[in-house]
Design a binder for these strands. Structure first.
Lengths: 258, 258
DNA sequence: TAAAACTGTGTATCACTTACACAAAACAGT
DNA sequence: ACTGTTTTGTGTAAGTGATACACAGTTTTA
């Protein structure tokens, strides 16, 4: 099995991602499958987070010994990579007006946001390559289609996809981290938000942080009762700006020629 | 010392962030300082990454025992939070035209990008609260100023800051992950990029991924020789779109009234 | 009917975090 | 000055986790 410090590890990973780890015909029939292992690991990570994910626990969950997993996976890192692609699943098909690329991208963003809230640990997974698995690329494809239709070409379409991806990932990350931190502190959402507001009021010096102080004074950081402290709305705002920016870019290029 | 599963942990953290862990007057004079510990930990994380960061190694680096660190810090998690704020430092002062909010934000983005490349591990640090340290907030403030001047108010200014922050963080994350993965595989940049292109060509099915296939055919994924595989340029593209979007939003609001 | 290849397992090693208790050090109040 | 209290740095030990390695049993191939 290829060491992690080896170019072969990348090829091996691709093989597993795309061909699901076909086994040679010799030897005993495997009792487990890669898919089964990845599924058990995903369930565990969903329920208790990436920190609670250990080879031991996955193995126990499946009723096998820890070391048996190493017959399917070169190590924990590789397992996480496989989990990440599997958990991504396929993006939901877009059913709206095919000409409305903005709506299609908004739906994409929304679906991805939900995916990350469903599998928060994927945001912390350390991947060794750019997206290369079938599901990761399916999401990529689903964004490229409307962007291409909007009029973006080549590298611009990639850049725009990455920009939207960046926004969703980070905003989801903000939301997830806040929820996790809140839960670890044993606070309600309201308590947590009020505590943050109070902390800002206590420590933020108006001379050093004038703009921030003004916002605090406006009550911007007070508890809102919104889910995820309103991060979803921040994301909506951001996506709207980004799509506006893309639209005006395409228009300018069209009018002015390349 | 407050357990992590305790609201007091948050107050304790704030105390350390803002008042640097003042010590009671009784007892032996401490030989270490919080700052010293954080600095050693930052150097280690810079050099070898967050995985290599252990209490043992930090202590050894300083010439003390592992457990001595626990007199200054409640645990590794808290240390990482302190490191993150300290490593953020203060944003460089903006020296350009004060009326040119776009240039100011571009400079901010650029400085932040460099910060993340200098301290890549901060992108993986798990923080228990929204930004609450003096340096984190200083960066926040530095973005709020030009955005406020641009004409954004209240929650909009926050949303826009988060959007730009999201872009920089994630693009830096892409760059960092690619570099790390490349290094672990023992490949040159060129080899790594060529390998990715080759993998896409091998596995991507034109029927299932038509838009992606078109891009691959255009040679978009071929090695470029650009630093960080051109991610910096993708970020520039993205920031340009975002600023355009913000600008048109402000203009529309001004013309139409709130 | 071997020989070869592969599976699941038991064992062992190494690194890590952190709880706990102890002795020495420094201060506070008398 | 003195004594009790608080705090520091340390030694020890427990618990968890990743993973290397060798072994015995299983299945296929020649």
């Amino acid at each position: 099995m290829a060491d992690a410090n080896d170019p072969r590890a990348r090829l091996e990973l691709l093989e597993l991602l795309w061909r699901g780890g076909q086994r040679p015909s010799r030897g005993p029939k495997p009792k487990l499958t890669l898919d089964q292992i990845a599924q058990a690991a995903i369930s565990l990570a969903d329920a208790e987070g990436l920190d609670a994910l250990s080879m031991q626990r996955v193995a126990t969950e499946l009723g096998y010994t820890t070391m048996s997993l190493y017959r399917y996976v070169s190590g924990k890192d590789q397992l996480v990579e496989l989990m990440t692609d599997k958990a991504a699943g396929d993006p939901p098909p877009y059913t709206g007006d095919p000409a409305d690329w903005r709506a299609e991208l908004e739906a994409w963003v929304h679906a991805l946001w939900e995916l990350y809230l469903r599998h928060p640990w994927t945001l912390r997974a350390q991947l060794s390559t750019p997206p290369a698995g079938p599901h990761q690329l399916a999401w990529f494809e689903a964004a490229l289609r409307p962007l291409t239709r909007a009029g973006l070409t080549g590298g611009d379409a990639i850049s725009a996809t990455l920009l939207l991806l960046a926004a969703v990932r980070q905003f989801a990350g903000f939301a997830v981290d806040m929820t996790a931190g809140r839960a670890r502190a044993g606070l309600t959402t309201e308590e947590s938000e009020a505590g943050y507001d109070a902390a800002l009021r206590e420590f933020v010096d108006p001379d050093r942080y004038p703009a921030l102080t003004a916002l605090i004074g406006d009550g911007v950081f007070q508890p809102t009762g919104l889910p995820d402290s309103g991060i979803g709305l921040d994301l909506d705002f951001g996506v709207h700006r980004v799509l506006d920016g893309i639209e005006s870019y395409v228009r300018a290029r069209r009018e002015q020629g390349p």
